[in-house]
Design a protein around this nucleic acid. Sequence first.
DNA 1: TCATGTGTGAATGCGTTCATGCATGCTCTG
DNA 2: CAGAGCATGCATGAACGCATTCACACATGA
Lengths: 278, 278
Amino acid sequence: MDSTALRQLLGGRRLSPAQRRIARYLLEHPQEAAYLGTVDLAERVGVSQASVTRFAFALGFETFPEFRAAVRSLVLTPTTNGPAEELNEIQLLVETEIRNLRSLRDGLADLGPLREAAGALAASQPLPVLGLRVSAPLAHLFGYFAAKAHLDVRVLDCPGSLMEDGLLRAVDAGADWALAFALPRYPREMRDALTFARRVGLRTVLVTDQPINPLTEHADLVLTAPVSSHFAFDSHAASTVLCSALLHAMLAALPKERQASLDAFEAMAAQREVFVAD
Amino acid sequence: MDSTALRQLLGGRRLSPAQRRIARYLLEHPQEAAYLGTVDLAERVGVSQASVTRFAFALGFETFPEFRAAVRSLVLTPTTNGPAEELNEIQLLVETEIRNLRSLRDGLADLGPLREAAGALAASQPLPVLGLRVSAPLAHLFGYFAAKAHLDVRVLDCPGSLMEDGLLRAVDAGADWALAFALPRYPREMRDALTFARRVGLRTVLVTDQPINPLTEHADLVLTAPVSSHFAFDSHAASTVLCSALLHAMLAALPKERQASLDAFEAMAAQREVFVAD
DNA sequence: TCATGTGTGAATGCGTTCATGCATGCTCTG
DNA sequence: CAGAGCATGCATGAACGCATTCACACATGA
């Protein structure tokens, strides 16, 4: 199924909000687009039936059935996609990442370690999150999401004394666990931070790429996500997903009212019109 | 497409000659079977329209549309009905991401848009990189890597006037393109930033999750990476990989001596003992 | 503040599709 | 050869899908 052609078909014109929603739905459900009628389509998208016919017209078709016929010829192409096409260089890069994710998936068959880490982190308040250099963005991503349900997440991305200050203040405020991201390569400064954390009484969860590397011995719990370095820049899909998984497990480990506050947070954001409605 | 299931559906009952002809036609044209009406189907097979409705009834369906719906669910099923192994919740999360990456991979069969974007960004000096809220970490990740080969990358993650200041300074210094990350949901402030960028003469590459959303119309080039939101926290594996792909393409678009400087950078880091040796 | 244009949903009318009754032709049997 | 049983095509009424109209909400600019 070739969604790029469909994309091209839908993308050209300037569309109204409701029409964009229709286009989006069709891109996400190209199969259904081939046979759905105006009424059913309108129902699923959540717009009026009239908007659907107008949508077809806006795309340059005389009638909706005409538009649907065009979609059919795109979606139901006579199985042109030979399965064994040559993948280009970039596709190979993605393919490598897919393998990484498969490996991560298989490694998560046993949720014990993940749940243990999630429980410990969810209970620690405040929760320091460490990430240096290339791992700093990941720490911030985690922090962004975690803050929605955890009351006091503190992302520390500056090495040395600054990080030590942050750790000390966290301990004073009652923290007993910290989370550290350390993708390859392993900054010396992160090792120092981990040893410091241990010295001030913190236990640490380390997210890294190998179960045994120069940093793991300084952590109490280690979660691993494979990283491939066959291309110019290291890949981070697996660690990003592991980050999501950890958040997911943490949410489950948090008390109910905290989980509810996440929804409240979203509702509040909508009310403040932080995001563009579509 | 699995024609055995269709065969099974059509084969069971005893059918009259005309009905057999209909069944045969459907087996030979399973695609059409999904959407053809009684009249068109009757026409193609060479029987009367009434025979088609009776055909559906003979197969045990109340009405013809009902029969057609059954055919659809057979013909249009995702075919590869899964590894059927029991995956736990977290593994399902990873599985979703794998699907996202596959989708991304297929979308990258045509490298035209990616190369075009990479070429434009590589040539722009300085290069402003925009990311707000949840997209800020991604912008920083990009910035971290890009800075290794590009002389002047400026990550802007604060909305409003601060971002505008950064864009203005970049334009004054000679920038003509900007890169913006906008994963869902789409901050209003990012839309403002994009319109501002256009007003001050910048063209923009937008990395987002849908080809059509409230922001795409404000960008000159759009790269899309699917994001799934079936879990509590949005996933970002695909966008992370797309970020890597873009970096990879940019590196290829940069002059040779810049690429060499990347190696020099690494060598220097090793000499400074930034990383722990393993 | 009002006027204008745009976008949207509810209601309406038309055209098509589908199901059913009826007449015809075929096949098998006495 | 005659009659019953079945299959098939044609014709008609009901149901459905689609396009159009109208009224209203909203944003924009004088």
